[in-house]
């Protein structure tokens, strides 16, 4: 490879930055704000101010497959049951947007996929309704219960999960070092069609930085992060505490075979890249759509305007 792995990975990150899709992001934000205020006026007295969540709020978003998440916190006495809350929000959004978007019930959220706009772009929003755990305590403890739509859920026996979205967001805030590795692993996941949940990868990276000595340049740090995953994810007793709910061990979303497979995959990636630098391009490709070429268009001159040039003396040309 003609550049170092560190410089290459910087290019990968650059090509996945959200700034390349800023118009697309602002369209999402406009829609998000519209939905937030509609929910607030429809549920006056029953609702707290909705909060922005998801990878964009956590600064771990990459510009491939992008959506925005809204958490909608309701008061404890707003609904008899969590299911009622979920259905009420679904019905409201469905009535409001059925002509403009596909509205569907997902695992813990209601998905809004708007029909392509005049630029052919599709806006995706996930609305997550939650009910405070204790009456009038949300502003203080940020604790919410989410309804789990069992039809889609893996947690068959459970119909709700307790979470603290704010704690999940805060967990990753101001950790740019970790966020870079998270974005790289998300790029890997996307380009290699891996099915691991972004949330799982996030927690793995944060734990790796917390537990292992991760230093060096960007490649060395990424490699050490992957080594940590390789060496730990398949170990019995390995835990990944959900910052939103300490009782929830997120590694349990993978079974033993899947954990071993993740470990083997990390091992293989590291070995292949160490054997040949160029393999890094297979696992961590540049998003070609936004590849930054340092080449500036046009003929360059060194001063502000054209002037006399005297070429060097005794220059040799050969065959």
């Amino acid at each position: 490879m003609d550049i170092s792995k560190h410089d290459y990975l910087e290019k990968v990150l650059e090509s996945h930055k959200m700034k390349h899709v800023s118009d697309f992001v602002s369209k999402h934000k406009t829609k998000r704000d519209e939905i937030k205020s509609e929910l607030q006026s429809n549920y006056t007295g029953k609702i707290y101010v909705p909060i922005n969540s998801g990878s964009y709020a956590k600064h771990t978003a990459i510009n491939i497959k992008f959506d925005l998440d809204i958490i909608v916190p309701f008061k404890r006495d707003a609904f008899e049951t969590l299911e009622e809350m979920f259905d009420s929000v679904y019905d409201f959004l469905y009535e409001k947007y059925k002509d403009k978007a596909t509205v569907r019930k997902q695992k813990v959220s209601i998905g809004l996929e708007f029909y392509p706009d005049e630029d052919g772009e599709v806006i995706n929003l996930d609305i997550v309704p939650g009910r405070e755990l204790n009456q009038d305590k949300y502003l203080e403890d940020k604790k919410l219960n989410l309804y789990v739509n069992t039809l889609y859920g893996v947690l068959k026996e459970k119909t709700y999960i307790q979470t603290n979205i704010q704690a999940q967001i805060d967990h990753i805030t101001a950790k740019e070092n970790e966020r870079k590795k998270i974005r790289l692993l998300k790029a890997w996941k996307h380009h290699n069609r891996e099915t691991y949940k972004s949330f799982l990868l996030e927690l793995l990276v944060i734990k790796a930085f917390d537990q292992a000595n991760i230093d060096g340049n960007l490649w060395e740090k990424l490699k050490k992060t992957m080594e940590y995953i390789q060496n730990n994810v398949n170990q019995e007793g390995f835990t990944l505490k959900d910052p939103g709910n300490s009782g929830n061990n997120v590694i349990d979303t993978l079974n033993t075979n899947e954990r071993q497979k993740l470990s083997d995959t990390m091992k293989r990636i590291i070995e292949n890249i160490e054997a040949n630098d160029d393999n890094i391009k297979i696992y961590f490709p540049i998003n070609e759509k936004f590849e930054e070429t340092d080449t500036q268009r046009g003929y360059g001159i060194k001063t502000a305007s054209a002037s006399v040039s005297i070429p060097p003396n005794n220059t040799r040309f050969g065959l």
Binding site: I301, V308, I310
Partner: peptide
Amino acid sequence: IANCETVNIT
């Protein structure tokens, strides 16, 4: 040539 100080073009 491109690095030469008296050459003004890049």
